[in-house]
């Protein structure tokens, strides 16, 4: 029997809430070194990769590898029933049946909650993702995640363009990043300049530009990532017209969540 135990219920609640809008199924892999999750959206434009090393958990035990495809919406629903301080135990039988059991144990209430999830397909993941070098990107933008969330919210104001999915154009030029969305009844633009002020030294917006770049993204991907970005203080956006764009938030040196989005030039 394989039996990882962990206590990051709140963290997983937030991850599942952020991902389950866009990604239906995910591939989970628990190993001695930690958890790796990958999911791809149904239009196969975006891939999310979550890596969380074992040290990121208060308590993590996993003697042997355990990997499976699971439905994210079902998991989000199950996690909504759990308390934030529950201990989670994940069990799968050695003879490899096609279900996994998540047990939520509340030490305070003396309550145990058990969910069995059937394995599902995982839509083509996991994939081998190369580590791209920063120098391969035309521009890299770093900003506080709160600022990124504000921008996404503003872009959504005119985001509903009717029959087509609303899109956002992100352009980097002259040390500034411009985000533009066109809706049915108007447009919304935000321009961010590089900032590194003395009063907020920990919250700079940094723009590294090798050359100008302009890319189009469906607003839904930006909105989903902005939800996931609550897990970190800062976001990094790597832009290239030849490589997948990467929206990344690091989780306190113990892992990361990355959205890879297929490039679409303006």
């Amino acid at each position: 029997m394989l039996e990882p135990r962990l206590v990051q219920t709140t963290f997983f609640k937030n991850v599942l809430e952020a991902l389950s809008d866009l990604f239906i199924e995910a591939h989970f892999e628990f190993s001695r070194t930690g958890l790796e999750l990958q999911a791809i959206d149904t239009s196969r434009v975006a891939l999310v990769a979550l890596v969380l090393r074992a040290e990121a958990f208060n308590h993590y035990l996993c003697d042997r590898g355990l990997s499976m495809g699971l439905n994210l919406a079902d998991m989000a629903k199950a996690f909504r029933c759990a308390n934030n301080d529950d201990i989670i135990t994940i069990k799968a039988e050695e003879d490899w049946t096609d279900t996994v059991t998540f047990t939520f144990e509340s030490p305070e209430d003396g309550e145990i909650l058990e969910f069995d999830f059937d394995f599902v397909g995982s839509n083509g993941v996991p994939l081998e993702i190369p580590e791209y070098q920063e120098s391969e990107y035309q521009a890299i933008v770093r900003m506080p995640s709160a600022k990124f969330m504000r921008i996404c919210k503003k872009l959504s104001s005119f985001g509903d363009s009717g029959d087509r999915d609303p899109v956002v154009i992100i352009s980097v030029y002259k040390e500034r990043v411009r985000s533009f969305a066109r809706g049915k009844t108007g447009t919304s633009t935000t321009v961010c300049l590089q900032t590194q002020t003395v009063d907020k030294p920990k919250e700079p917006t940094l723009i590294e530009m090798k050359e100008e770049v302009s890319l189009i993204f469906d607003l839904k991907y930006m909105n989903s990532f902005s939800k996931a970005s609550t897990l970190s203080d800062q976001v990094t956006i790597n832009l290239s017209s030849e490589l997948p764009a990467v929206f990344e938030c690091k989780i306190a040196e113990l892992g990361y969540i990355r959205y890879y989005i297929s490039p679409r030039k303006e």
């Binding site: 791809i40 196969r44 434009v45 975006a46 490039p263």
Partner: peptide, 14 residues
Amino acid sequence: GAKQGSIMSFFKKP
């Protein structure tokens, strides 16, 4: 605009 390709074309199956 240019057609958006599948994200899978950038990554290999392990």
